[in-house]
Write a protein that binds this DNA or RNA. Sequence first.
DNA 1: GTCTATACCCTGATAGAC
DNA 2: GTCTATCAGGGTATAGAC
Lengths: 218, 218
Amino acid sequence: MAAVNPIARNLPVPRTTRQAQAAETRAALLTAARRVFGERGYLNTKITDITAAAGRSTGSFYEHFADKGQLLRALVGEMEAAADAHLAQHDHPADHDLTDRAQLRDHVAIAWTVMREHRPVTGAQFQSMIAADPGSGRAWQDLLDQTSTLREHLDHLREQGHRLPGDPQLIAAAIGAMLGLLGYAAPAQPADDDRIIDSLTDLLLHGLAGPLAGGAAG
Amino acid sequence: MAAVNPIARNLPVPRTTRQAQAAETRAALLTAARRVFGERGYLNTKITDITAAAGRSTGSFYEHFADKGQLLRALVGEMEAAADAHLAQHDHPADHDLTDRAQLRDHVAIAWTVMREHRPVTGAQFQSMIAADPGSGRAWQDLLDQTSTLREHLDHLREQGHRLPGDPQLIAAAIGAMLGLLGYAAPAQPADDDRIIDSLTDLLLHGLAGPLAGGAAG
DNA sequence: GTCTATACCCTGATAGAC
DNA sequence: GTCTATCAGGGTATAGAC
């Protein structure tokens, strides 16, 4: 199970490879953490679980990270970089119109896909957010931070005379809450993703009493 | 800070009052737990925190509860009893029509109010759900359980020929996710509750592109 | 930089007197 | 039934050899 550690021997290590080895260990810890976070969850994972899965010693961990939270931040940073690179491939209209179904669906799909493809990391982030001291307001702050772009789109809509259901910040947070918790809780079944994305899009676009709601047609 | 414990003396206790004292200790533990859960959160609260807040000894805890989770279940039971009693005062139409704004708003308002009035308990329940092993699927199951009534209402709508945005179970879970996480994360400011309830109602009723959306009127 | 070994603290849970 | 005292286990973080 545990990967073989090439440094665990008492052999002399050429100086030039030492920092490469360090980077390798750091990467091994990150990869192992991603795996065990996915299996047992972030909160239930101990530092010794991570080092064991990476085939490194306990003490080695602290050479790279001060604690579990810092390692999580590094994983989140990696994920955001990957997501940004992925997004750069897509064309984005400069002025979003979230009342256009295709554009709204794109946003829902991107959020959903990122959550699912990086489930161990987003799940860990979610657990960390919920476990924070309630008095700290971190959950609310995180929710606002992660929906700030959405909020800007809603602000934009409102400036153009659109009548929204409520304050853009609140609506953005509500949508983020729906996607965030549903994405965390729903079982991972990629075959269902399209159906879920379509359903959420329609719910957010027209609600329960939308234009489709009245008819008896199937 | 800690309440005075009348049994902490070595005085003889009349037999008839012993079970009353036990009930009192149990109640003191529940009340103290509710308070510390609200302050530090469920996950960060240790059993010794509860007993200290209740002015009882550590060992006394185990006479009443096997562990922290069982105590939480007791608190949830109390809350549900209170909520049921509260709901019994209101008239409920036998056949709900969630596409009627007043009825939808009632449901949103009830869910929101219960969450907020029992914040320490619902917050603890939420933390407990999120901290569970991801592989257990408990988060998803809890979400389904807590939205089963809503789902029935949506089933009812569909049977009457209403076209919903998606599978009733999924839509109910999505709405529950929105309310649940938002209710957990949003700062407690009762003055804002009505505004939030109205906004969420409108979002769920007509979405972002609802009938109000197009006009430039304020 | 990594390892082994360990000190330390915290927490859950129990034993036995009253 | 409650208390005091304590034990056992687990987890973080460090020390020092290599």
